[in-house]
Design a binder for these strands. Structure first.
Lengths: 351, 351
DNA sequence: CTACATATACTCAATCGGAGCATATGGCAA
DNA sequence: TTGCCATATGCTCCGATTGAGTATATGTAG
């Protein structure tokens, strides 16, 4: 078959169609660079954390960012190889599980002020890693993801920042008359706010992390919006800083990562990437709760996990739990071969 | 806040770390171009179809491809705008719903033989459109997606091509001694084949379209593998062509699109993007079955769709159904505001 | 007018999922 | 040493969901 094709040129049959310049020399595509960005997540002491590196070049204050670097196809055969190489270089960390999230290309959401850079297309990745030996950082810091998204932290009930700061301003923004033409299918701002933030009887959906961040960005309520020069950001004078900002579009990528992880944990056994080799069921539950929010029924969680065949007992127990010793379990890889979509199928019920 | 940052340069605090060349001028990133590719899906006469354009430049035989074009940030503010513009230019079609699928960057899976192109990173999109006025094509053809993936067509029961051609060869490939070092976590080829193709008691998972295609590619059993010069492809001499090939990595993108659509239809009301404004419940069911495979219980499907609040009756009926007239329904957009994840939650039971 | 084909309504049993009660067992303090 | 405490673990109960089947309604074609 390799002999069959030879001189074929990529060209679609059409008279006046532009030839696939797509595949032409690069001069025509000036200024496109591909950035690889990794949101590397772990759970340490029941706290979900993400690996950040600091930009200390600016005296006006350091800003956290994700490990990142350009994709250079001459050096790396695949995108993922490039990503791993950048992360290793910047932090010393090698991770196991990785998954692509999304490719962002919006003009204006990547540049930092004063920069005259070419257009950047950023590909975001989610990586998971577990504590334990061989996971030491050379550079960078683990930081709680709620540091960047305080309104996502429901571990002590509904976060105060929602009613104190966010909701009133979003309501004001939603009610503001829109000068420009409404979009073709008018999803009213009010409705978006309502659905994203679970107002007026709607339920809070813990998976909508990205939607919420994007809404806040659009409303000009996060620092990145003013940094990018979004018009909506100019309306606010008394607005407090909502969560810590990140460089470039990294907070958006992190929001995507959290959304994805919160969704995927329910139908794929990804939690185990965050666990040590052996663990008790309660430790497993704590890890799930760190990611989703703490509203799981202990006995049912056990039943769920055991009956799904996700784990098997090692035969040993862990004492010093403060009560009766707990059996130790390990992940059963074989579930992948047995069930179509094994995961911690918990319902996001509210506490 | 816009005043706060000014001369900040993207630089991560580290002595010997490469400065984020990521954001440097393009000379260092020679040869990276971004291709935007659209898998545009519709359902016509209960057949799932995809929009393809033909490459007729080569006398040795025309090959179907997806509408595609390069992303040029100077012309298009976002990736999606660029995509819509290319599709419109190449086919005359404007579509509504669109969603990004994945970004592929593997070296060697995009080039066509004889080509000397720079490295391409392709971003795949899934777009959905419904029949009806204003949807006429100027160029391109609608083609059944089973034309490219005959082994995915379970509408008449288990497709013969599986046992006749595919499974024996995959078993042979799996049993073949692997010369190079096994991967760190040895997921045996046998197991992959078993899980992907539902052998030895494992269930066929209709969402694993991409995994199956990738396995066939790896085993050298699809034409693209030989075109790309994959070594595994040289082993086969008597192997028939498994499904129609596509240009570049377009069949991979289409496989991703089918996988995504089959998964998403279950938890998001995306079917309605494929339906006309008014429809009967059976028409809706037929559309779902065209996508997932025909194994739905009619009465339960009705109950499901109605009780989920996905549709509402228009009050009218459609006669000439061949029997009792059927009520007409329309999509209830409000579900989006009411339920966290509304979709046609059907189980993939086998017929 | 009647047979037919499809639409629609209703029933029943099995299963699942949420919630709580009951029991087991090591640690620790009186 | 004993008994309390905290946590682990086992089990029950009930309502909601779901798979599958039966029964009824109402057009069209002959």
């Amino acid at each position: 078959m390799t002999t069959e094709a030879h001189m074929r040129r990529p060209r679609i049959a059409r008279r006046d169609m532009p030839p696939p310049t797509s595949m032409r020399p690069r001069e025509e595509h000036a200024g496109v660079a591909i950035g690889l960005n990794a949101a590397i997540v772990a759970v340490a002491a029941d706290e979900p954390v993400v690996l950040v590196v600091r930009d200390e070049a600016d005296a006006s204050g350091a800003v956290d960012g994700l490990p990142f670097g350009p994709f250079s196809p001459l050096d790396h055969r695949t995108l993922e190889i490039g990503l791993r190489s950048w992360v290793h270089e910047q932090t010393g960390l090698d991770f196991g599980y990785v998954e692509q999230l999304y490719t962002f290309g919006d003009r204006g959401r990547h540049a930092e002020p004063g920069d005259r850079t070419p257009h950047i297309v950023s590909i975001g990745y989610l990586a998971l890693t577990s504590p334990g030996p061989g996971r030491e950082l050379q550079r960078g810091t683990w930081r709680s993801w709620y540091h960047f998204f305080p309104w996502e932290d429901w571990r002590k009930g509904r976060p105060e920042i929602l009613d104190a700061e966010i909701v009133p301003r979003l309501r004001e923004w939603a009610a503001r008359p829109q000068l420009h033409a409404a979009p073709a299918r008018p999803v009213m701002r009010e409705e978006r706010v309502r659905v994203c933030f679970g107002l007026d009887g709607a339920a809070w959906d813990e998976e909508k992390v990205l939607e919420r961040y994007e809404l806040l960005y659009e409303a000009g309520l996060v620092e990145e919006a003013s940094r990018d020069g979004r018009e909506a950001a100019r309306f606010w004078h008394d607005a407090p800083r909502l969560g810590a900002p990140m460089r470039f579009d990294h907070r958006r990528i992190l929001a995507t990562a959290i959304s994805r992880l919160r969704a995927k944990i329910k139908y794929r056994p990804v939690v185990f990437e965050l666990m040590p080799a052996e663990f008790t069921l309660y430790e497993l539950q704590k890890t799930v709760e760190a990611i989703l929010g703490p509203h799981l029924h202990k006995q049912n969680f056990r039943r769920l996990v055991e009956s799904a065949g996700l784990v098997e007992p090692t035969g040993e127990v862990k004492t010093r739990t403060g009560g009766r010793p707990a059996k130790l379990y390990r992940y059963r890889r074989e579930v992948l071969l047995e069930r179509p979509s094994p995961g911690v199928r918990v319902k996001p019920g509210r506490a």
